[in-house]
Design a protein around this nucleic acid. Sequence first.
DNA 1: CGAACTGTTGAATAAGGTCAAACCAGGTGG
DNA 2: CCACCTGGTTTGACCTTATTCAACAGTTCG
Lengths: 246, 246
Amino acid sequence: MKLVVGNACPRHEIAAVPEDCAQCAVREIAVCTALSGPELERLRDIAVSKIFEPGSTLFAADEPATMVGTVVQGTIKCFKLLPDGRQQIVGFLFPGDFIGSPTQETTHGFAEALTRVELCLFPSPAIQRLIREMPNLERRLLTLASDDLDLAQEWMLLLGRKTAQERLATFLLLLAQKAKARGIADGPIDLPMNRSEIADYLGLSLETVSRQFSKLKSSGHIRIEHNNEVTIRNLDGLTEIAEGTA
Amino acid sequence: MKLVVGNACPRHEIAAVPEDCAQCAVREIAVCTALSGPELERLRDIAVSKIFEPGSTLFAADEPATMVGTVVQGTIKCFKLLPDGRQQIVGFLFPGDFIGSPTQETTHGFAEALTRVELCLFPSPAIQRLIREMPNLERRLLTLASDDLDLAQEWMLLLGRKTAQERLATFLLLLAQKAKARGIADGPIDLPMNRSEIADYLGLSLETVSRQFSKLKSSGHIRIEHNNEVTIRNLDGLTEIAEGTA
DNA sequence: CGAACTGTTGAATAAGGTCAAACCAGGTGG
DNA sequence: CCACCTGGTTTGACCTTATTCAACAGTTCG
């Protein structure tokens, strides 16, 4: 596996790259779970590891799509922009998530690192060749795309029809669920994004997000520590709020 | 190709089914464009034609996903519901569009016919077998899923960040664009859905949709006939409104 | 300590929702 | 033929929710 350092990454930040997929932190949950043996080796052979510092841009909209890959470490926000600067975050990506679309020629949105991010990248021409030759890989990508589509549609329901309170509750439950999928034990949920970014994900203003946090806190549904660690104290109650059945 | 009639379809409504894909109205734009010759024949062999009357349900949420297919005629709304009845339409499907996800075991939303709908359906087990054997088909499905995902994210931007006026303008431009893709010449756009359904797609109330129609009408951007035929009189202006640059 | 940042809270405002009445076709039946 | 109904739509008046603007608090870091 080759090692490349992102533009925004100072020399001294280069991380050690695992030679062996078996030791990879996200081996069990990323795209590569679809592969094993020689197929996995072929994928590893085209992989490039790249580090991005917090705040750095992974790609902008309407550029040629040169890379797709797996998030190994850190959190990414994917978003769309309106000409006047209004922003809608369409998804946060965590370790194990796949970034980029292997079928699209150009990017259709922006991606930015919220924390220090390590990516396991696959250059487009190479991955497209592999997809052709490895049906397992293509099936996995189709499954991922379908799941992403379903999540996006669930979010359309949230953005189109839910109240501010319901949106925040849904968001916290989603984070909890995603953390669980990554094998992170119950306990405080880490919020690698700030209030403004949560607002841009939920289609709200940052003040409204803050107010809704306060409400959930004072109603005893959650506890907040250091502004970026949330503990769910009443899962059922929070679920009812999220679904509008409270 | 077998012929099956949907529950809601009285006997006398059975339509003639084309024996030959070459004569199919959506041959040039549907999934099947990825295939030809013997592959196309194999797909046709598992296909089942089914008619749905306006208002009938194609499938509900959280059912086993037994079918996927192509819309041959008519318009479908796909939507999500909240327990209290709030509805978000996540997409309208027109002739040539693909419905259903071949990878998902259960449905994740509802689908309902807005007009008389003719579907060219592929039963799940059979299509999954074909996908395994025909990489062209799988690649096409991956492309479709990626495109759907992008549209869904574009809609998240609309639902999260656009004003009522911008939403309606964007909606009309989308319909015009989709009509064009189906090879329908410029000219009045047909609205097979009512104001309430447009509202449920745009995350608005039906009254707000109506008011925004009136505004676009009196500002000369559009003309409306019979409440369901819209002519765009100022494409550039409408585009500027849709993007928030007006 | 003070600057810069992020988050919280309050007051005023605006956008869109809700409720209700009027409108306008397209049918139905006297 | 025309009055009447009916469903969808439009329009108006009022209300609610979330936004905007603004002040303030808590942290972090030089």
